[in-house]
């Protein structure tokens, strides 16, 4: 099960004209791999995620999630697809303030018509996988930033998605915690066979990716594998992109 975006073009209205956010973008993410997308602010990374998450319908091109083409399905079917096939790790944890860590995961199953009790074991298992067994009964305001982000990741995996979309997961974390979160994502991707798209501006974390793409002015270019297949050398970013990312904010 994979994610496939073919020849995607997306434009937004801008005054009298339209601005192109994605320009004939093609991306194929195989199951069990992480593809990182890097690029400066405003380059179209978030638009790419929005299209992949079926939250925005592109002007042209096709999006296939886990073998299901999304072009001709309605709003309710898209919501169902997001529930069952897609996991989204938001840039901010976006946890619901009234729910405990455990309930943040259980609500995913409830959205899909399951009783929270039926999925308790799986939710506890996922919390254990992200190292939060002892925090299961805590609400977001009782958790640290890193713990909230780990709940965010566990929630995205709750319905066993075939595609995981990860939006700047380390922007609110310090370097050490950010690295731990990315390692966790990479490990879970391989263990669970998801196709993961990681949008990030932090080049120090690209080593976890199997493939790295650059997004510049709405166009996606191949930047090569994150590590050299023979020696495991880390991905070397382009100087222009590096300086752009240094000056960028968390938003992409």
């Amino acid at each position: 099960m994979s994610l496939q975006l073919d020849d995607i073009t997306l434009t937004y209205p801008d005054g009298d004209g339209r601005v192109t956010a994605l320009d004939r973008v093609t991306l194929h993410v195989p199951a069990g791999t992480v593809t990182a997308v890097v690029g400066p602010s405003g380059s179209g990374k978030s638009s790419l995620l929005a299209v992949a998450a079926t939250l925005v319908t592109p002007d042209s091109g096709t999006v296939t999630v886990g073998g299901t083409p999304t072009g001709s399905i309605g709003r309710a079917e898209r919501a169902e697809l997001r529930r069952r096939r897609l996991g989204i790790v938001f840039q901010q944890p976006n946890l619901l303030p009234s729910l405990t860590a455990l309930e943040q995961l259980q609500v995913m199953a409830h959205l899909d018509g399951h009783r929270p009790r039926e999925v308790r074991e799986r939710a506890e298992e996922l919390l254990a996988a992200v190292g939060l067994t002892d925090q299961a009964r805590r609400r977001p305001h009782q958790l640290s930033g890193g713990q909230r982000q780990r709940v965010n990741i566990a929630r995205a995996l709750m319905n066993e998605p075939s595609v995981l979309l990860v939006d700047e997961p380390t922007s609110a974390l310090d370097h050490e915690r950010g690295a731990a979160v990315l390692d966790l994502l990479a490990r879970l991707t391989r263990e669970r066979g998801t196709a993961t798209v990681l949008v990030t501006h932090d080049r120090a974390h690209l080593a976890v990716a199997d493939d790295v793409r650059e997004m510049v002015d709405g166009r996606l270019t191949a930047a090569g594998p994150a590590r050299d297949a023979a020696g495991g050398a880390p991905y070397a970013p382009t100087p222009e992109l590096d300086s752009a990312s240094d000056s960028s904010t968390a938003t992409c």
């Binding site: 919501a79 529930r83 069952r84 897609l86 989204i88 619901l96 609500v107 995913m108 959205l111």
Partner: peptide, 15 residues
């Protein structure tokens, strides 16, 4: 904001 998150996670509007 919470409603937007729930919708993004796949909640239907009738739910």
């Amino acid at each position: 904001g919470d409603i937007a998150v729930l919708k993004a996670l796949g909640s239907s509007t009738p739910y």
